[in-house]
Computed example of a mutant assay.
Amino acid sequence: MGFLRRRWRALSGVAALAAVFTLVPAVGVFAEQKASFDPGDIISDDSFFNPNSMTQADIQKFLAARPCKPKDGVPCLSRYRVDTPDVAASPERCTALRGQRNERASNVIARVAAACTISPRVLLVLLQKEQSLLTAPSASGYQKATGYACPDTAECDAKFFGFFNQVYRAAWQFREYTVHPGDWRYRIGKNSIQYHPDATCGTSTVTIANQATANLYNYTPYQPNAETLAKPTGPAGACSTFGNLNFSRLYNAWFGSPLAVRFAGFVPACLIYTGGFGCEPVRPFDGG
């Protein structure tokens, strides 16, 4: 499948996630307790952009360890395989990818993470946040895996359906936000961010601390309100949205604090594409 090369501006909504998963809590993954959440600092740049946080073997082992109850006769993600296409390099965003037949989902995640310099942990959390794909996969979930091109106020764009397509486009989009931050609505600094797609639910000013957090808001443009933070597993109120809160809580439950950094005060220039396509791998990714 070919991929569009033009940029998608902030108001297009193409990368906004599906409304059904914005508005519902994630349950069964973490304890029901009041959430600790800083809306301006959801994840560190280092945690977001580190493609070497997991190898393909690490990802496969992680997927196999998730309790999984699939629907529609589909396999769990640890057993899911798909034919993938050749994808040309996208300057400043992702290096080229060569297609493979019968490729494991874990290998897709590892290769896309490496090509686009995005942490595979971020992609794993995104797959769960959007479609519960690690614990309750469905046929529809594989088609809309990362919620890419599924805006809150319209139907999903079917030309972006498919597991590989969704994983690649989400990673590509995060890179687009990063290399052209001025083209997108949410940026480092003070931003007015809604609590819900219904504007009457209100907004507040959020000081976004880093590019990684700005990326999450450009992808999922809402913050949780006080009621949502007090009841992070529901029931949902009329103005509740859970998307970015679910991202934070899932990441913390699976990988530890999303605010962690390997080297305090230092982010390699390659992680934010100062000098090209991103960082050279610290260790090779296993095929499979």
Score class of each variant (00 low, 15 high):
203 T>P: 00
268 P>Y: 15
162 G>T: 13
195 Y>E: 06
257 S>N: 07
160 F>A: 04
136 A>G: 04
261 V>M: 08
169 R>A: 05
182 G>A: 06
189 G>Q: 08
191 N>S: 06
173 Q>C: 03
223 Q>L: 09
245 L>H: 02
258 P>F: 00
225 N>P: 00
226 A>L: 15
259 L>Y: 02
236 A>M: 13
249 R>W: 03
154 A>P: 08
254 W>I: 02
213 T>D: 05
205 T>E: 13
187 R>S: 10
219 Y>S: 05
167 V>S: 07
163 F>H: 14
196 H>G: 03
240 S>K: 05
186 Y>V: 06
173 Q>I: 01
218 N>D: 07
257 S>C: 02
204 S>N: 03
254 W>P: 02
229 L>A: 05
207 T>K: 13
194 Q>V: 00
218 N>T: 10
247 F>H: 01
192 S>M: 04
201 C>F: 02
141 G>R: 06
215 N>V: 09
219 Y>D: 07
180 H>L: 04
267 V>E: 08
195 Y>D: 11
156 C>D: 06
217 Y>F: 15
245 L>W: 01
250 L>K: 08
264 A>R: 11
176 E>R: 12
137 P>A: 15
172 W>A: 05
211 Q>V: 09
248 S>G: 02
246 N>Q: 13
214 A>M: 10
191 N>E: 12
163 F>C: 05
242 F>E: 10
191 N>P: 03
238 A>H: 11
234 G>W: 03
137 P>L: 14
259 L>H: 03
235 P>V: 09
251 Y>I: 01
138 S>Y: 12
184 W>C: 05
168 Y>E: 05
246 N>H: 04
190 K>I: 00
157 D>K: 12
148 Y>F: 14
152 D>Q: 14
257 S>F: 03
226 A>M: 12
172 W>H: 03
201 C>D: 11
200 T>Y: 05
247 F>S: 07
199 A>V: 11
223 Q>T: 15
143 Q>G: 03
185 R>C: 08
203 T>S: 10
221 P>I: 12
225 N>V: 02
191 N>W: 13
245 L>F: 00
164 F>S: 10
237 G>R: 08
